[in-house]
C-alpha cells in the first residue's frame, strides 16, 4: 500500500506537484497518466526517494519512507525506466541478479530466480543469460529491465514509461506479460505513462495528472463515462472515448445467449473492439461467441451500440 499525504514539490520556484493526496491499495495496478511535464514521474520517484518532497509525506505499508533506510527501502521496491539503464559491462543474468545480490541471496537461489524470470518474460534464446545488453534488441533489453525490477519479488514495483520506446507489437506483448505477472503475484504496481490506451489497457485504476494535480482518479470506465471536467473529457478523447470503452469492455458483458449459426467466432474474454474488428473484417453484423472452444452465444453489431448501464 502506498499513501501520498499532502505531497508537494517545487523545482526552481515552479510548483511541480501541489498538495497531492492518493492511496494505492495492495495488489492494485495503478497507472498515472498525463502529458509530459505534468509531474507524474516526479511523483513516482518520490516513492523510492529518488526525489524528496518539499511538503507532505509518503507511506509505504504504513511507514513514512523518509524514516526508513534509503537503500533498504529501494531494494524492497522494483524499479524500471524507459531508457532501461542496463549495466553495459554486466551480462543479462548479472543485470537481473542485481537486487538479489545486494540482498545477499545464495548463488543457487539467484540462479534459479534468474532462470525463472527469463522464462516468465520469454527471454528464451539459448545462452541469453551470458550475453551482454548491447547484443539484445530494444524489446529484449526492456524485458531484461522488467525482469531486473521483479527479481527480488518486491511487493511494490515502480515503472516509469517502461514501454515508451518500443514498437507497438513488442509493447503489446510486454503489456500483456506484465498484466499476467501482476495478477499472478498480486504485486502492487505504480505505472507512469503518457499513453491513454496503455493506461486504460493496464490499469485497475487510472489517475490523470495535469500540471501537478490529480484531476481525476478512477477506473478506466469512470474516466470515460463520468469525466470530472472538460480537460479530462478532452484528454480521454472526446467523442472517440467510446472507442476506448470498446477496448476495455469484454464480449461477456454484451453477448446474448441465442446461439447464432455460421460465421466466425470470437472468444468470450476478447474485447468488444476485437469483436467489432472481426465484424468489419468479415462484413457480418453477428458473430458466434465461444468459451473455451464451445459456442455459448452470439453478439451483434446492435449490442455494441446499445447503451446499457
Amino acid at each position: 500500500m502506498i499513501v501520498f499525504e499532502g505531497v508537494g514539490k517545487r523545482f526552481g520556484g515552479r510548483s511541480v506537484i501541489d498538495g497531492l493526496d492518493l492511496r494505492i491499495e495492495d495488489g492494485e495496478f495503478f497507472v498515472l497518466v498525463g502529458p509530459s511535464g505534468s509531474g507524474k514521474s516526479t511523483l513516482l520517484r518520490m516513492v523510492n526517494r529518488l526525489v524528496t518532497p518539499d511538503s507532505g509525506r509518503i507511506l509505504v505499508d504504513g511507514d513514512d519512507v523518509a524514516s526508513v533506510d534509503v537503500e533498504q527501502l529501494r531494494r524492497g521496491i522494483g524499479y524500471a525506466i524507459q531508457s532501461v539503464g542496463l549495466f553495459p559491462h554486466r551480462t543479462v543474468g548479472e543485470n537481473i541478479a542485481t537486487v538479489p545480490r545486494l540482498l545477499g541471496w545464495s548463488k543457487r537461489d539467484i540462479d534459479a530466480r534468474v532462470d525463472e524470470l527469463l522464462a516468465l518474460l520469454r527471454l528464451d534464446d539459448p545462452g541469453i543469460a551470458d550475453r551482454y545488453p548491447r547484443t539484445l534488441s530494444g524489446g529484449q533489453q526492456q524485458r531484461v529491465g522488467v525482469a531486473r525490477a521483479l527479481a527480488a519479488r518486491p511487493r511494490i514495483v515502480l515503472m516509469d514509461e517502461p514501454f515508451g520506446a518500443l514498437d507497438p507489437l513488442t509493447r503489446e506483448s510486454l503489456q500483456s506479460a506484465l498484466r499476467t505477472i501482476q495478477r499472478d503475484t498480486a504485486t502492487t504496481i505504480l505505472f507512469v505513462t503518457h499513453d491513454m490506451d496503455e493506461a486504460f489497457g493496464l490499469g485497475d485504476r487510472v489517475g490523470l495528472m495535469l500540471d501537478g494535480h490529480l484531476v481525476q482518479v478512477g477506473t478506466p470506465l469512470e474516466l470515460i463515462r463520468q469525466p470530472a471536467d472538460e480537460r479530462v473529457r478532452e484528454f480521454v478523447g472526446g467523442s472517440r472515448a467510446r472507442l476506448r470503452e470498446l477496448a476495455i469492455r469484454p464480449v461477456r458483458e454484451r453477448m446474448r445467449n441465442e446461439i447464432a449459426s455460421g460465421g466466425a467466432a470470437v472468444d468470450i474474454d476478447a474485447s468488444l473492439q476485437d469483436a467489432l474488428g472481426a465484424m468489419l473484417a468479415q462484413g457480418r453484423d453477428r458473430l458466434r461467441v465461444e468459451e473455451k472452444g464451445r459456442v455459448v452465444g452470439s453478439i451483434a453489431l446492435a449490442d455494441l451500440v446499445e447503451r446499457r448501464g
Binding site: N48, E71, R74, I81, G85, L86, T98, R148
Partner: peptide, 24 residues
Amino acid sequence: DARDAARGLGMSRWHVLARIQVPL
C-alpha cells in the same frame, strides 16, 4: 540512465562507484 537505475534499485553511492562507474 544506468546510474539512475543503480540508485533506484538500492545501490549505495559507493556501490555505484565501485561496481558501475569504475569498471566502465
